[in-house]
Computed example of a mutant assay.
Amino acid sequence: MQMDTSATLRQALLTHREQTLTRLYQRTFPLVRRYVQQHGGSASDAKDVFQDAMVVFYEKATAESFALTSSVSTYLVGISRNLWRRELTRRQQLPATSLGAEHEQAVAEDVGPGADERESLPVFDYVAQLGERCKNMLLAFYYFQQPLEQIASSLHYGSIRSATVQKFKCLERLRKSVRAVVAEALAHH
């Protein structure tokens, strides 16, 4: 099963999801684990980062507009590195409101395509299952790229901090549901 072009990769993900995810995992996870461990993380951290990267990758790769400009492994390692750098920043316990616009932009670029594409994305199905409040939170932040101040106000959170905590909880629930699908796919091989 060749995955040299965006179209063949997309087709492989849509028609042979388990096989494709398994191959990507086997080929790329060791590289991600090495990177995370060399940069202060554990094997468990690497697994979390890689699963999150797979979520981002799967969402992007199954979108019609996806264009692969490097190898799949290089692309996945790149996403993983960005996610791990962000996690290290978060662990330094910076208040969420002190994160600059550049950081917020990086999150938005890594996580989501434009709002007009979201209906066709498999990950959107998982977001929809989270319930109205989580769905609105994640769409506002990642797809519409609204600042947390605006989200806190429009979704009636008491503070930016409580909106940040809720966003984190919603993202965790989304990750768990997608991880379950990835884990199920990998368990069969």
Rank of each mutant, 00 (worst) to 15 (best):
Q2W: 04
Q2G: 15
D4W: 00
T5G: 08
T5L: 03
S6R: 07
S6Q: 08
T8A: 10
R10S: 13
Q11Y: 04
A12D: 05
H16D: 12
E18W: 00
L21G: 11
T22M: 07
T22R: 11
Q26C: 06
R27A: 15
F29D: 06
P30D: 02
P30W: 03
V32S: 03
V36C: 09
Q37G: 06
Q38K: 07
A46I: 06
D48T: 15
V49C: 08
V49Q: 06
Q51F: 09
M54I: 12
M54D: 02
V56R: 10
Y58Q: 10
K60W: 12
T62D: 04
A63Q: 12
E64Q: 14
F66C: 10
A67C: 01
T69N: 11
V72G: 06
G78L: 00
S80M: 04
S80Q: 03
N82M: 11
R85C: 12
R86P: 08
R86T: 09
R86E: 13
Q92F: 01
Q92N: 14
S98D: 01
S98A: 13
G100K: 05
A101H: 01
H103E: 09
H103F: 14
Q105P: 04
V107M: 10
E109V: 12
E109L: 13
E109Y: 00
G114W: 00
G114T: 08
G114E: 13
G114N: 13
A115K: 09
D116L: 10
R118Q: 14
R118E: 04
L121P: 07
P122E: 07
V123D: 08
V123Q: 08
A128M: 11
A128F: 05
G131Q: 02
G131N: 06
G131R: 03
R133H: 02
C134Y: 01
K135V: 10
K135R: 14
N136K: 08
M137S: 10
M137R: 01
L139Q: 01
L139I: 13
A140S: 15
A140K: 02
A140F: 02
Y142Q: 07
Y142T: 05
F144E: 15
P147M: 02
L148H: 03
E149T: 14
Q150E: 14
S153I: 11
S153M: 04
S154A: 11
S154Y: 04
Y157A: 14
Y157D: 10
G158M: 01
R161T: 15
A163V: 05
T164S: 10
F168M: 12
F168P: 06
L171R: 09
L174A: 08
R175W: 00
R175I: 03
R175H: 12
K176F: 00
R179M: 02
R179E: 08
A180P: 09
V181C: 01
A183T: 13
E184C: 05
L186V: 00
H188T: 14
H189A: 01
